[in-house]
Amino acid sequence: MSQKAQNNKAWWLVMPVVILVAFNAVIPLMTVVNYSVQETFGDNVFFYEGLKWFGQVLHSERFHEALGRQFLFTGIVLLIEIPLGVAIALAMPRKGIGVSICLVLMSLPLLIPWNVVGAMWNIFALPDIGLLGKTLNAMGFDYNYTRQPFSAWATVVAMDVWHWTSLVVLLAYAGLTAIPEDYFQAARIDGASAWSVFRYIQLPKMKRVLTIAILLRFMDSFMIYTEPFVLTGGGPGNTTTFLSIDLVKMALGQFDLGPAAAMSIIYFLIILLVSWLFYTFTMRNEN
């Protein structure tokens, strides 16, 4: 005897989402898969190439370098944003008017569109007229993000930290405020130091939200495109050409649709794999 759905009408409610997801995710993805195994010179003429593009991308030095830069960037950004975000959340007030003020201030960077962030920092950091660039140079630092790779990297990282740390703050703050007051009182009575309170109460209780924060920031920073594109255009040279910038260069700049499609899929699989590994690893000890 069937034990299945008791109210089939409910499925109709899901239909709009199914259609939406089909159009904006599944169908484009299938197109990409289609391109990745064929060669085309336009005019809708296709030749089947099998896994050739995949092999080519995986063995190309250009891909390796872009991937390396990408991991380095994501690593640096996570290492700064997560601890910084948690630290800010810990320092935020728990009650009173300060809470709303802090929350509004924290949300501001999140509301600014990506390309605007890039444009803002582009001007802000200009060595001759930008406030940041000019100040740094006046202080004796030789700073020029259009010429020196280190300046460019530092600027891209600073920009991302400025833009996205707030997200980590908000998530961590939500996690912190959900901890019952009893825990802190018990810890005070047990004579726990501030560090112990953080290590044994706040951090374990924030584990779930931090996992989400890290995943979101990993995926987002791994796919970063607009801000560095607007700021440095991937330069100087190729020093800030991350995977997505490289991909766009290949697909639109050189019109190598096949390799670009193969690269997209590899790119996608890397994100999926890393996220899955991270999630299963951190949630392994739950229950």
């Binding site: 019952p180 009893d182 825990y183 009182q185 018990a186 009575i189 047990d190 004579g191 726990a192 130091s193 112990s196 044994y200 109460i201 374990p204 209780k205």
Partner: peptide
């Protein structure tokens, strides 16, 4: 103080929980 809803340090073992106030 013992509270209404039990407060334990989740990541610690029972032994570590009991030792916590003394270690501090």
């Amino acid at each position: 103080q013992v509270f209404q809803f039990p407060v334990v340090y989740d990541t610690m073992t029972v032994r570590e929980n009991l030792a916590f106030p003394l270690r501090n």
